[in-house]
């Protein structure tokens, strides 16, 4: 655009028709939307950091760890289930399932860049193929998260037995799993933050899948072929990579640390 300007020097920068960032309006606004979305996720991670480190940590090796409301749980002992592992005779598979979820999301990010790359060449069939793989990856991730949530909510077989003072009397009871009111695994904020952070991320994945599907549908209809540009695939790609990026942080701060 800028090369076609023939107006006087003073108008080159301020008269419009210029692209100082060498990116289209849509892409630029996607970047700034993602920046603001990053602030939202940061606020969740900031709350997580503050709340987690204001609770005492469990002292001792992770094999001696037991659930208690007294200290923050060791994540690798909370998230150690894998679908069907008991029928295979495996006692615990710590973090293997989230590792798999991470792998699925990173792979769907890879297929997304491949779709963008195919878009640059204007290869409609390839864009369709890679977009479809991306959508499948997103749906698989959501399925895994549904299983993860179910397992977290239902809880372990032994549960957590503890005593508490109710109306001046000590009552001993056992709770199973976690929700926004009770938490078997540790202090209540642990469960609350789990639901808020993974839930907010999961909702982003869900909207990403919906937007990906709309773009995929338009690719099939030949909308972008008619326009002569597959830039919309790039824009939705930015969003999808951002979702992957957030998961990288959730994986580290919620599951590994």
């Amino acid at each position: 655009m800028a090369s076609t300007l023939t107006v006087s020097d003073s108008k080159i920068n301020w008269g419009g028709g210029n692209e100082p960032f060498k990116a289209s309006y849509g892409k630029l606004m996607m970047w700034f939307f993602l920046l603001s979305d990053a602030f939202t996720f940061s606020s969740l991670l900031i709350s997580y950091a503050l709340i987690r480190y204001s609770h005492p940590a469990f002292i001792g090796s992770s094999s001696e760890f037991t659930f208690s409301h007294e200290y923050w749980p060791v994540p690798e002992r909370v998230f150690e289930a894998f679908p069907g592992m008991h029928s295979l005779g495996i006692e615990a598979a710590p973090l293997v399932f989230v590792g798999l979820m991470t792998f699925i999301l990173i792979m769907s990010s890879v297929t997304m860049v491949l779709a963008v790359e195919a878009g640059h060449r204007g290869s409609k069939a390839e864009v369709e193929k890679w977009m479809l793989w991306t959508i499948l990856g997103g749906l698989t991730f959501l399925g895994c998260q549904a299983w993860e949530w179910t397992h977290f909510i239902v809880g372990t077989e032994h549960g957590l037995t503890f005593s508490e003072l109710i109306n001046g009397e000590w009552v001993t009871r056992t709770i199973y799993g976690a929700n926004l009111v009770e938490n078997e695994y540790g202090p209540q904020p642990f469960a609350d933050l789990f639901f808020f952070i993974t839930g907010f991320h999961g909702f982003h994945v869900f909207s990403g899948v919906v937007i990906n599907y709309i773009v995929f549908y338009n690719v099939m209809l030949g909308t972008y072929e008619r326009i002569g540009s597959y830039e919309m695939v790039e824009k939705v790609g930015l969003y999808w990579h951002f979702v992957d990026l957030v998961w990288v942080f959730v994986f580290t701060f919620f599951y590994l640390v």
Binding site: P20, K22, A23, V113, H241, F242, L245, T252, L256, V257
Partner: peptide, 26 residues
Amino acid sequence: FIGLTIVKAAYIVGEFMHLRHEVKFL
């Protein structure tokens, strides 16, 4: 963990999101 997460974030943002190849101001 924080160091490795930043490495991963740099690759995703830099290469997948193509930011490394954008204009310096962006």
